Amino acid sequence: MVNCVVKNWQGEDAGEASFELKVAKPENAEHIVHRAAVRQLNNARQGTASSKTRAEVRGGGRKPWRQKGTGRARAGSIRSPLWRGGGVTFGPKPRDYSTKMNRKERRLALRTAFSSRLEDMIVVENFGAELERPKTKEVLAALERWGIGSDEKVLLILKEVSDNVNLSTRNIAKVKMIKATNLNVIDVLHANKLVVAKDALEQIQEVYSD
């Protein structure tokens, strides 16, 4: 069981929240989180890079000069990889970079990564409830009240994303907003600070507890 201090919109302590997630053993934690992170990055690759071999480059069907008697090196095609404009030797071809990982392992890695960021986590009560209209300046002021520097990358985790919150945060370069059900290892590890709505924390406990 882990206890977190809950802050309100003004940056004052408003109580405590607790959550309990099953995490990996200390000796295996780093390994399984690393595997999950590598898998996510690999699966994000398009794998569409492609170069032409000497058989695919247009032209080069005629032998450029006769085999002997010219004093020059032997050449059979102007599309040889040795020539400018020729084919590429062992160049990239379209491929699938995706890697597999068991569902239980993926969820265990996610819970472990999330729990490891406890010191950088700020739980907020009723996030955005006081935003009567879209106002980026008010969100920036709230982040400052919670002790977050202007140069820190922030991951904002919400249960539901209202229009006012979406419009107020989308123009802040270092703030990324996701729903609690879309939690992933890379975003959790990449951010300097995690701002979690109290109801989102309860949803994380409910969805990822098994």
Rank of each mutant, 00 (worst) to 15 (best):
V195D: 01
K176F: 05
A29I: 07
G91Q: 10
D96R: 06
N182H: 13
N166P: 01
D163A: 06
V2T: 15
L21E: 00
I204C: 04
G147W: 09
V57Q: 06
K174C: 02
L143P: 02
R54E: 09
K135M: 06
L189A: 07
Y97L: 11
L82E: 05
V175K: 00
T53F: 08
S162Y: 05
A191N: 02
S162F: 09
I157R: 00
V196D: 02
V57G: 08
D210F: 14
D151N: 12
N43T: 07
G147Y: 10
A24W: 11
K63I: 08
I178K: 01
G15D: 04
E20S: 12
I32W: 12
S18D: 08
D210P: 05
I122D: 03
A173N: 06
Y208I: 01
H31G: 11
A17W: 09
S98N: 09
E56S: 11
E160D: 14
K63T: 08
G149E: 11
R45E: 06
G59D: 08
E105T: 15
K104C: 07
Q203K: 11
K100M: 09
V33Q: 04
V161Q: 01
A191V: 03
H34Q: 12
R54K: 14
K25A: 15
A37M: 15
V154Q: 00
D96S: 07
W9A: 03
V154R: 00
R145A: 10
G76W: 15
V124W: 02
E20T: 14
L21G: 00
G69A: 06
D96P: 05
W83T: 00
L156E: 00
A17G: 05
G91S: 13
R79M: 11
G149C: 05
L156C: 01
D163S: 06
K25L: 11
N3S: 12
C4I: 10
P81A: 09
V33K: 03
Q46M: 12
A73S: 14
A44Y: 10
T53D: 13
L82H: 09
S98D: 04
P26W: 06
H31C: 04
R106P: 02
K176W: 04
S98W: 06
E152F: 04
N8K: 04
G147E: 06
M101G: 05
L118I: 15
T48W: 10
R133E: 13
A37H: 15
S209E: 14
P92M: 10
K52P: 09
G47Y: 08
K193Y: 05
E30A: 13
A37Q: 12
G47S: 03
A44N: 13
S116N: 12
V154I: 12
R107Y: 13
E144P: 00
W65V: 04
